[in-house]
């Protein structure tokens, strides 16, 4: 079936199988930041934003994003021009193996869209559904709080 949606600001019009998972479609389109961890919605590695909301792309089929805006980490920043949230993860040492990082950054992005001044508790609740097996979460929470401070200081674009 034909699918029309916006991926990282660029309209996409393409053929998909009605049962193709959104996760699979996004990776097929080159969005390799979208990881398959558990495939059952538990780990958060496949998190993307649909119309600004974090969702599990492994628990969606592609047709569900008909007419929607999808944001993956690739749409947030790049190696040459990282988003302040990405820079904060680097500066805080919040990245080890990196598998959970795209999902972590995207749920943090959703949190900071609606809350410029999150408490450490707000941050822990926001990332509660994203599993990291390396860091122990402390530096990830530090990174999100650092990015929030930069946002308050007007350092976000």
């Amino acid at each position: 079936m034909k699918l029309l949606f916006e991926l990282n600001g660029v309209p996409q019009y393409l053929d998909v199988e009605p049962g193709e998972r959104l996760l699979r479609l996004l990776r097929r389109l080159g969005m390799k930041s979208v990881k398959e961890g558990c495939g059952t919605g538990d780990c958060g590695a496949c998190t993307v934003l649909v119309d600004g909301r974090a969702v599990r792309s492994c628990l969606m089929v592609a047709p569900q994003v008909q007419g929607r805006r999808v944001l993956t980490l690739e749409g947030l920043g790049s190696v040459d021009d990282p988003h302040p949230l990405q820079q904060a993860f680097l500066d805080a040492g919040a990245v080890q193996c990196g598998f959970c990082t795209p999902g972590m950054i995207l749920v943090a992005y959703e949190l900071l869209q609606g809350n410029d001044d999150p408490s450490p508790e707000d941050v822990r609740k926001a990332i509660a559904g994203n599993l990291c097996r390396c860091t122990g979460y402390v530096k990830i929470a530090d990174a999100v709080l650092l990015a929030a401070r930069w946002k308050q200081e007007g350092k976000w674009r």
Partner: peptide, 15 residues
Amino acid sequence: MSGVHARGVRRFHFA
């Protein structure tokens, strides 16, 4: 839903 497709699905409708 393991694997890359919801295997049996042939059609998708927006009611």
